[in-house]
């Protein structure tokens, strides 16, 4: 059965770390702290490098629309939806370093808010207001749509397998 989230007092909302989850609160305690930080750093390096590669492979359009960062952010949002359902929400993946490595590190390093905001500002500064607004809006809509669809699909698949298993 899968009637989830009857308005929890405190929904788990932060994929980076949620101190209301005891296991996550304890991540920086004891010698395991350095292992957690190390996998986050390694993931962040990998994610940032992949994002950099995307910007080199897919330059901005003639009108300045930053397609590479758009694609990176939308893809990363879909993947965090899958990851969070499989780890924190449904517990299909229980290894304690998976969320820190893939969620905080790889996907957090892959996606970016600062470059997104700076590109919108840059377009506005160059009098490309229409492209700036289109980019700002399209990213927000596509990113939220991606995380919603990916999470919904993964929940449905996880729950179906849960019933038949």
């Amino acid at each position: 059965m899968s009637t989830q989230d009857p308005l929890p007092e405190r929904p788990v909302v932060d994929p980076d770390v949620d101190l209301s989850v005891p296991a996550q609160r304890a991540e920086t305690e004891g010698p395991g702290k350095w292992r957690v930080l190390a996998v986050i750093a390694a993931g962040g390096a990998a994610g940032a490098t992949a994002r950099y590669a995307a910007t080199l492979a897919l330059p901005a359009a003639d009108d300045g629309f930053p397609w590479a960062i758009f694609a990176v952010n939308v893809t990363g949002c879909a993947l965090i939806g899958v990851l969070m359902v499989l780890t924190v929400e449904r517990g299909r993946i229980t290894h304690p370093l998976v969320r820190p490595f893939l969620g905080v590190g790889v996907l957090g390093g892959f996606t970016t808010f600062s470059t997104y905001a700076a590109d919108v500002s840059g377009l506005l500064a160059r009098q490309e207001a229409a492209t700036a607004m289109a980019y700002m809006g399209a990213t927000a809509v596509a990113a939220l749509g991606a995380v919603w669809a990916a999470a919904a699909l993964t929940r449905a698949l996880a729950d179906r397998r849960g019933r038949t298993a």
């Binding site: 962040g44 940032a48 952010n73 949002c77 969620g103 957090g108 390093g109 970016t112």
Partner: peptide
């Protein structure tokens, strides 16, 4: 590209908004 890009995040932001 490195520090600011990884310090900030769109994936975490979008999942939080969804939740």
């Amino acid at each position: 590209t490195g520090l600011c890009g990884a310090l900030t995040t769109y994936s975490t932001f979008s999942y939080e908004t969804l939740r």
